[in-house]
Design a protein around this nucleic acid. Structure first.
Length: 271
DNA sequence: TTATTCGGAAATTAAAAACA
DNA sequence: GTTTTTAATTTCCGAATAAT
């Protein structure tokens, strides 16, 4: 590794090139530039308290404790509660590919990373399971969607499980598993998102009364979470807070314009 | 082909924390 | 007090792009 100049001249610094430290330096001479050292270097090193890492660790531990407590209060659904062969990795993959390609621009929730992460814990995390099921149901229920066909670049093949690939079956599964834990008393952003997808499913199935019921449920859960309160955004990281904000406005817009919701939803649905 | 730009890895530096 | 850890800042490599 070559030795660094004790200080690069203003031009070399700006150009991000190695300065030989001469007066003028070789780069400045070649470029016919005045070789100056006018900029005052900033003070290096940390400023203020360095307790940031400790705070981060504390927060991480707090979140873990919280998750453990929630699990105590929401018994993890035993795997036999989940219908085997219904929410297959192929279905989830196909739905994610379709959703993030065609629908995400108009409905930028949830985060793809969250869904991908959830795949590893579907059997132990009831909330995640319900969200993924509702998400897939919503995607499949859109008219003209052939999730497996698009994912494989060919026509969908009949699955071993008769209801696999059926949006209605996945919707029913999400709602059934959801009833096994108390999501109303302990809502989270995931709960709200799930209710929103359930609303979208019923809307797609043309069951408008039930759809509005779940939209109201999503809004009420959002209210319980204080999503309208700007202070609740400060404590979470930027990516999470962005999705939270989007979700809030999605609910706000959808609820405030029930009459407009129909064309809006279908706008989101068709590309 | 040569010159220029610039993202970002590596090096440098200094403040805070840990240790003796 | 000295040493270690951490974070802010600088340097400049090298890939991408523009100019010739």
């Amino acid at each position: 590794m070559s030795t660094s100049a004790k200080r690069a001249c203003d031009a070399c610094h700006r150009r991000k090139v190695k300065c030989d430290g001469g007066l003028p330096c070789r780069n400045c001479s070649q470029a016919s530039l005045g070789c100056t050292f006018n900029t005052v270097p900033q003070k290096k090193g940390p400023k203020g308290s360095r307790a940031k890492v400790i705070s981060e660790l504390r927060e991480a531990q707090r979140q873990t404790q919280l998750a453990l407590k929630l699990n105590e209060r929401w018994p993890i659904p035993p795997s036999q509660v989940l219908t085997p062969g219904l929410l297959t990795p192929e279905i989830v993959k196909g739905c994610m590919d379709f959703f993030f390609k065609h629908m995400y621009p108009n409905m930028p929730i949830p985060r793809r990373e969250y869904l991908e992460q959830s795949l590893g814990s579907l059997e132990t995390d009831g909330e995640a399971y319900c969200l993924v099921a509702a998400f897939c149901a919503f995607t499949i229920i859109q008219p003209g969607v052939n999730v497996l066909g698009e994912a494989a670049g060919k026509a969908a093949e009949p699955s071993a499980y008769p209801a696999a690939g059926s949006g209605a079956a996945l919707l029913e599964e999400a709602l059934r598993v959801r009833r096994t834990f108390d999501y109303i008393d302990n809502p989270s952003q995931v709960t709200v998102t799930t209710s929103f997808f359930v609303f979208g499913c019923y809307f797609g199935l043309e069951k408008h009364n039930i759809a509005w019921f779940y939209l109201r449920e999503a809004t009420t859960l959002a209210q319980i979470l204080g999503m309208e309160d700007e202070n609740t955004y400060a404590a979470i990281d930027a990516g999470e807070s962005l999705v939270r904000r989007r979700l809030f406005w999605l609910l706000f817009v959808t609820e405030r314009s029930e009459a407009l919701a129909s064309p809006w939803l279908h706008l989101a649905i068709y590309r």
